[in-house]
């Protein structure tokens, strides 16, 4: 293995890998945020009193978690543009819809992340003691205020460990978008490995970069978890 290939600058592939890493992290963060939004909607949907909404949310998580992520990515990449196109057709817009690989990647991985976030958030919502909400209502707080002051902080405290797992899963699954040609970390490692004939060196470097990002962000989640659990008495 020739580690000089990993240096920055013209002779090494280090800067290309790092640029790929930036794309990977950006893709992961945006997908994760989209996932949280979908997760909140999905979780409240699953707990909704309306049967139709409940079934819709249930169907979303069952399908997304029931098929391989790679297959989901293929369906989104080959079908989303056409689907949006025909939806816009109904409103009288006949132009072509074009989405780049990054945007479609965010949507595909966001949908995946959202399904897992839904489960994490739903579990936390159910675990919030009813007395807390009752007490807030007894104080005369309107629903929005209750959500901001009572539900959300408790939700974060209970859901953060599982949401941390969802983040790790989201980060790792972004690598699948490289199959569709997005020049993320994985793709750069593939290209570098091909042109230098040292694929092991570059895939190992990519693996270690994923590992470092995962370790660092894990720490951040630990810090956040401690912060949101300040009020909890520990044995």
């Amino acid at each position: 293995m020739d580690f000089a290939l990993l240096t920055l600058g013209d002779t090494g592939w280090g800067d290309e890998l790092l640029r790929g890493l930036v794309t990977t992290v950006a893709l992961a963060v945006l997908s994760y945020l989209l996932g949280i939004v979908l997760g909140l909607i999905g979780a409240f949907g699953k707990l909704s009193g309306r049967r139709g909404i409940r079934l819709l949310a249930e169907g979303y998580t069952t399908v997304v978690r029931g098929i391989p992520t790679l297959v989901l990515v293929f369906i989104i990449f080959f079908g989303l543009e056409a689907a949006i196109g025909s939806a816009l057709d109904a409103f009288g817009y006949t132009g072509q819809v074009f989405l780049d690989a990054f945007t479609m990647g965010v949507i595909a991985i966001g949908l995946l992340s959202g399904a897992y976030s839904t489960e994490a958030i739903r579990g936390a919502l159910v675990a919030i003691p009813a007395g807390q909400i009752e007490a807030a209502r007894a104080f005369g707080m309107p629903p929005r205020l209750i959500f901001r002051r009572i539900t959300l902080p408790l939700l974060l405290r209970i859901a953060l460990p599982s949401l941390g797992n969802v983040w790790q899963l989201t980060l790792k699954d972004t690598s699948l978008i490289s199959v569709m040609g997005l020049t993320d970390l994985m793709r750069q490692a593939f290209v570098a490995g091909n042109s230098t004939r040292e694929p092991f060196t570059f895939f190992l470097a990519a693996a270690l970069l994923y590992l470092v990002v995962s370790a660092v962000t894990n720490r951040l989640f630990d810090v956040a978890e401690r912060r949101f659990s300040r009020g909890v008495r520990r044995a």
């Binding site: 790792k172 972004t174 690598s175 699948l176 593939f190 895939f203 693996a207 994923y210 590992l211 370790a215």
Partner: peptide
Amino acid sequence: STPLLVQFFLIYY
């Protein structure tokens, strides 16, 4: 902590 795809490529390629 590494993607499965990297593990596949690490071994195969």
